[in-house]
Design a binder for these strands. Structure first.
Lengths: 156, 156
DNA sequence: TTGAGAATGATATAACCTAACTTTTTTAAT
DNA sequence: ATTAAAAAAGTTAGGTTATATCATTCTCAA
């Protein structure tokens, strides 16, 4: 599957998911998601504004971008990486299986991001830690400060 | 042990640790650490400036606060919580055992923080995930979005 | 077709963080 | 004690990230 078809597939799936949840993937939201899906790395809201400007020849105020990103996060189509204050498209929009807990490997140099899955048993253990401390887990997303292969090699 | 003695103990231990590493826990650094140790919750750099002002009747520019926080982090006396853009004193300054990987449970309502330890086997598994993706782990600190017991009960 | 709610626009500003240069303080060698 | 080097802290300025608030436009269903 070429990258264009893959993008279209992802957008179509996102569209369907929103419909089934009674929310609307408007044109702007679709454009922002599309830009993020195409990006090879995590982007800040302001970087995304620049990409949006370039790609769609239209401006977008920060407020709107943040609102759209909030929406996409609430639909689980986009994740915010707090380690980097940047955003990535969910890597599993077009997957069948239910989404498990994501573990994000973030390259501190180039902001390249890998989204991998975590074994449920592992999550259970983390949950046990939480419970033992009398806390209640809201969202178990994990983010880890890494170097990707090429940045790691350059650092040697 | 009362809270005053505990504080003094922690500061003394921090002092010793810095000395043994050839770094200096200056008066200002000590004051900032002390304020953080006494705080029941995570504080932002600017909140910490206010606390510092109130407690020591002295002002501190943001730049200085960030520098001091950088220093304290490099000495492993303070952790930055990226989920909240806030800082906490390490909960194990006065512990004998080597510091394992911390897992931070952050109450999204009141910013109360619990620092717990993670089983080494669990970290190993997370590391395996990283390795399998051809990434190289830099820092494995985990942060989890939670509610503390009392905020959880209030939300019901 | 019209009214309610959702989405977006516009403006302003708050909150977080760092670069770069200056001054002060500390340390260690003379 | 004196002084040069290094470390810490001060100062100024500005960049990045994020949100509050009110106004306008769009969309959908009654």
């Amino acid at each position: 599957m070429g990258s264009t078809e893959k993008l279209e597939q992802v957008i179509a799936d996102a569209q369907r998911q929103c419909q089934s949840r009674g929310s609307r993937l408007t044109t702007k939201r679709k454009q922002v998601l599309s830009a993020l899906v195409q990006s090879q790395k995590a982007l800040s809201a302001y970087e995304l504004i620049d990409v949006y400007k370039a790609q769609f020849d239209d401006s977008m105020p920060p407020m709107s971008m943040y609102r759209i990103l909030d929406f996409l996060q609430s639909e689980h189509l986009v994740h915010k990486l707090n380690l980097a204050n940047k955003f990535v498209a969910c890597a599993h929009i077009s997957c069948d299986h239910a989404h498990g807990v994501p573990q994000f490997l973030i390259c501190g140099d180039c902001n390249n991001v890998q989204e991998v899955h975590i074994k449920p048993e592992l999550i259970d253990e983390l949950r046990d830690n939480v419970k033992a401390a009398n806390f209640y887990l809201i969202s178990p997303q994990l983010e880890m400060n890494c170097l990707c292969e090429s940045c790691f090699e350059q650092a040697q």
